[in-house]
């Protein structure tokens, strides 16, 4: 963390290639390097002007401090040459910065033709990633290193924003409209995806991971159905994985505390009081319905905000989730 003073003073990248610097997080995409070059240019330019302005202020304040009440002052009212200079020089610099920023922005905005296509859906409050060619649907983004990836994004509810600090990319994800962002990862590893447009209660929990894999690992990931095939796992283990990766855990705790949704600890077999005064017994059918058609029965004390998972989960996955919820304890 860039908190120590000595680190603050070094300011720039004295660290190994791609590592985090005082001002910027690690670089893991081609765009990161471009953006950072311009960022540091701006930073040094700003420091220069800051020192100039504040240096002159301090200098004058000390040198011309009032020593006696009648101290004479200069009658200067202006200086044409100087005023032109300090309008024109910054203006020229600003044109350079503008053009440089625009050039890089175009680079960020126009994906190369051969990019890998992935669809991104933002939804309160989780991300899902669909690989149309590979037929995979996942809740983490796995991509091969060194290959351009194009994300076509939309939202099912409100505006979200897809932000990967390590890649220096961000794009709003809007309902009824597609937005596009692309990147080419340069380092294998796992990076944070954050939602950067305020979207309500669990906005700050709307996180995901990008896994940048070597070409081989990526192929293996694709072959395994995106890590969510459940191969080699017990149904409960698989359900637990899905519970985390499908976004259930953003709203439902497994420790008894209520969040946006009711806790699922010890829920199986319980009698649930519903909005409208009825109640229902929590059995396999109730659980299944709550997942694919959450608005059908809303638990008392909660808002009907849960999104539907109809069409997003295969039967095997649904069963695994139900098994996992059972494993969280039953009420007699």
């Amino acid at each position: 963390m860039p908190t120590s003073l000595s680190q603050m003073l070094t300011l720039a990248a004295a660290a190994p290639e791609g590592a985090a610097t005082t001002w910027m997080p690690e670089q893991a995409s081609t765009a990161a390097e471009r953006t950072d070059t311009l960022f540091y240019f701006l930073l040094y330019l700003s420091i220069f002007f800051f020192v100039l302005v504040i240096g002159a202020t301090i200098l004058f304040a000390v040198k011309y401090r009032r020593r006696h009440a009648r101290q004479r002052t200069s009658p200067i009212e202006g200086n044409r040459k100087l005023e032109v200079a300090w309008a024109v020089i910054p203006a020229l610099l600003l044109v350079v910065i503008f053009a440089w920023g625009f050039r890089d922005f175009i680079h960020l905005s126009v994906p190369p033709g051969d990019a890998l296509d992935i669809r991104v859906t933002g939804q309160k409050w989780f991300w899902s990633f669909d690989y149309p060619k590979e037929g995979i649907s996942a809740n983490e983004l796995a991509v091969p290193v060194g290959r351009p990836v194009k994300l076509t994004m939309s939202s099912t509810d409100v505006i979200h924003s897809f932000f990967v600090p390590a890649f220096r990319i961000k794009r709003d994800v809007v309902p009824n409209r597609y937005t596009v962002v692309w990147f080419e990862a340069t380092e294998t590893g796992t990076y944070d995806v954050l939602c950067a447009e305020y979207c309500g209660t669990s906005h700050s929990r709307m996180l995901a991971k990008v896994k940048v894999l070597s070409e081989n690992d990526y192929q293996a990931w694709v072959d395994s159905g995106g890590g969510l095939s459940g191969k080699g796992m017990s149904s409960v283990e698989f359900g637990k994985l899905l519970f985390q990766s499908k976004g259930c855990a953003t709203c439902h705790s497994v420790d008894g505390s209520a969040r946006t949704g009711p806790t699922l600890k010890g829920k199986y077999g319980a009698l649930e009081a519903l909005v409208g005064g009825q109640s229902a017994k929590v059995d396999d059918n109730y659980l299944r319905e709550s997942i694919v058609d959450p608005a059908a029965k809303v638990v008392q004390g909660f808002e009907p905000v849960m999104p539907t998972y109809a069409g997003k989960l295969k039967d095997k996955q649904l069963n695994a989730l139900i098994d996992y919820i059972k494993s969280l304890g039953t009420s007699k």
């Binding site: 953006t35 701006l42 700003s46 503008f98 625009f102 924003s161």
Partner: peptide, 30 residues
Amino acid sequence: ALAFLFLFTIGGLTGLFLGTLSVDVHLTDT
């Protein structure tokens, strides 16, 4: 007034970062 010069200069200069398209992509909404 002197504090203003100090603080506003920082505020103004950091505005340049946000006006610069590619850099703003990283910094906006943070």
